[in-house]
Design a protein around this nucleic acid. Structure first.
Lengths: 223, 223
DNA sequence: ACAAAAATGATAGTTGTACTATTATTTTTT
DNA sequence: AAAAAATAATAGTACAACTATCATTTTTGT
């Protein structure tokens, strides 16, 4: 029953596998919290070195730069999400139910299964919501893509797209709908918190939930 | 018939109105092209100063920093979009047709109506696609929002949301659907170009178009 | 248990970004 | 033509994003 979930890290992600040493684990554990606290732009390796009682140079031995560190966090996040999706639907036969479950997972705190190299699951989710776009909205996107570093994100979307096709094989846009779903499961909570005019989820609980919106969106399309 | 469309610039956007001087216009005109070429991260005021044959200090007299300059570009973009939406639907009565027209506008090159302080419309669109998220996915989002600097984006979404409500007054998520539509009209072309696995719009023309996807998405929901 | 190898710490230095300040010169306004 | 405003030229600061060197500590293989 203990489903072992080990990501085979693309070795281009990190210069040295941070999971293999105490310092490496400290860097990613504390680095994640610091990036959540400061935001990607204000986060620096120097500040992280102070917190982890190490030096900038030591951090650079693990990660080429902070963009790679962000990518490392997101790789974990995407892998954990895909894992959560897979395990949660494994005993469900009905595709409608499976998709509902996926939306549930996308809009809930990450389930506490699997290890994440000591990193906080909720911090991973916060960083994913606020920073994930920055990992591919860069000039270097094609180079990074060539290194296969977006594979975990693509795999997650492909997995979800396959469920859409299972429910409705004639639906013509399963992959776009999957990327829309994943992106919006991050943007809508962000908008809800910071730019509520862009959503319908005003704080005084009016019963509307993001999950309901996404369910409506997806199932309307697949109908 | 010449609908004058002048944005009343929030004076917090720029320190000095760049439209009012030759140098100001040059800064935004060349700055836009340079930001498109280099991407937001690699764009600097120093490089822009070289190109415009001026000094860093002079540019800083117009814009506090490059984030404000990006916001300036996007403000124009959002205003131009809203203007295009308004003019294109003004003679249409049928809400279904209006929404179709809006999706058309969101997925086509910006129509060449209105002036944009000498800035290239296609460059505005490119920058909007690749960089717009970076304007609100920052720690300072709440401060910027308090200055009303996201109003043009909210107005655009509100306008679109109103059309959704017009078509189906019972639809519970008009604003989220509007922000989803606007965001996806930018993300899907970006994905199509850089991460095509996340879309269904493979280059060898298979007839599927982003506009068709968005139409299907929106009208399914509003059905 | 010991030598070799690897990782880390301490330190320093480079380049570039993101600004701010000062003063002289040019341009615009009245 | 004088006053005011904008710009150019120049300089300088703080900090980000690295790279390099070498001594020390820790780990690993035998």
């Amino acid at each position: 029953m203990n489903l072992q979930f080990s990501i085979q890290p693309n070795e281009k992600l990190a210069l040295r596998n941070p999971e293999s040493t105490e310092l490496g684990r400290k860097i990613v554990r504390e680095g994640l919290l610091l990036m959540m606290e400061l935001g990607y732009e204000h986060f620096t390796f120097k500040k992280l070195a102070e917190i982890t009682q190490t030096t900038e140079a030591s951090i650079y031995r693990y990660f080429e730069n902070k963009h790679r560190l962000l990518l490392y966090f997101l790789t974990w996040y995407w892998n954990l999400l895909e894992f959560a999706v897979l395990t949660s639907i494994q005993n469900i036969a009905d595709p409608t139910q499976k998709i509902g479950k996926v939306i549930d997972i996308l809009t809930s705190p990450l389930p506490d299964v699997g290890e994440a190299a000591g990193m906080s699951k909720s911090a991973l989710q916060s960083v994913a919501i606020a920073e994930s776009s920055k990992v591919y909205l860069v000039k270097e996107v094609d180079d990074i893509n060539r290194e296969r570093l977006f594979k975990p994100y693509k795999d997650l979307c492909a997995r979800i797209a396959a469920l859409f096709t299972e429910l409705n094989p004639a639906y013509p846009y399963p992959r776009s709908l999957a990327s829309t779903l994943v992106e919006m499961s991050q943007f809508q909570p962000y908008f809800k918190e910071h730019l509520p005019a862009l959503t319908d989820f005003a704080e005084p609980k009016d019963g509307k939930r993001i999950a309901d919106y996404l369910n409506h969106l997806v199932f309307s399309s697949l109908k």
